[in-house]
Computed example of a mutant assay.
Amino acid sequence: MRELILLRHAHAESPAPGQDDRARALSSTGLAEAKAAGDWLREHGLTPDRALYSPAARTRQTLEALGDVGCTDLREEAAIYDASPGTLIALADAHGDARRLLLVGHNPGLEQLAALLHSGQTSDYRGMPPAGVAVLGFAPDAAIEPGAAQLSRFWWP
């Protein structure tokens, strides 16, 4: 079984006037949420082989605040920021050598991706809260495509 772990960034500070959205930092609530997400990942033995995160400060800080989840292959991936589900699928496919891949990103792309991979639809699904985690499992040789995944776990702080 291959797994794709989707982690939405934790709560961020509201943007300051004129601030670039990518520069928004986590709030104190967000830091606590990300730590709790890391605790949950460790508790369930969900050690990623590789973690990809968007270039936004809040995704990098979410990943850092997880603490040690046993992953040393951390890569910033520009395509995650403001990505569509199709872009995220292509990115996951490009990292098919990782048995367990963690994507740290943003809504609506992550929640749409979870719904699309699980049910084959995106329009009726919403609900990936900040620091929410969705774990999707695929058969070893299955393509990452709509409806091909089993949603094995879903958690949020």
Rank of each mutant, 00 (worst) to 15 (best):
E3A: 13
E3Q: 10
E3W: 11
E3Y: 15
I5H: 09
I5K: 06
L6R: 06
L7R: 04
R8A: 14
H11I: 14
Q19H: 10
D20Y: 02
D21W: 05
R22D: 09
A23P: 01
A23V: 12
S28K: 12
T29R: 06
L31K: 11
A32I: 02
E33W: 12
G38K: 04
W40T: 10
W40A: 07
L41S: 11
E43P: 00
E43I: 09
H44Q: 12
G45N: 05
T47D: 00
R50K: 15
L52G: 06
Y53G: 01
A56H: 04
R58S: 03
R58Q: 05
T59A: 10
R60S: 13
L66K: 00
G67A: 05
G67V: 02
D68V: 05
D68P: 02
D68R: 02
V69Q: 01
V69H: 06
L74W: 14
L74G: 02
L74N: 06
L74S: 05
E76W: 00
E76C: 13
E77S: 13
D82F: 06
D82K: 15
D82I: 01
A83T: 03
S84Q: 07
P85L: 03
P85T: 04
G86I: 01
T87V: 12
A90G: 15
L91A: 02
A92R: 03
H95A: 05
D97Y: 06
A98D: 04
R100L: 08
L103R: 04
L103F: 10
N107I: 10
P108C: 08
G109I: 07
L110E: 06
A114K: 08
A114H: 01
Q121C: 14
T122F: 02
D124Q: 11
R126M: 03
R126L: 10
P129N: 08
P130I: 03
P130T: 15
V135G: 06
V135E: 05
G137L: 05
D141H: 12
A143W: 12
I144L: 14
P146G: 11
P146V: 11
P146T: 10
G147D: 11
A148N: 13
A148S: 15
A149G: 07
A149C: 08
Q150F: 02
Q150E: 13
R153Q: 13
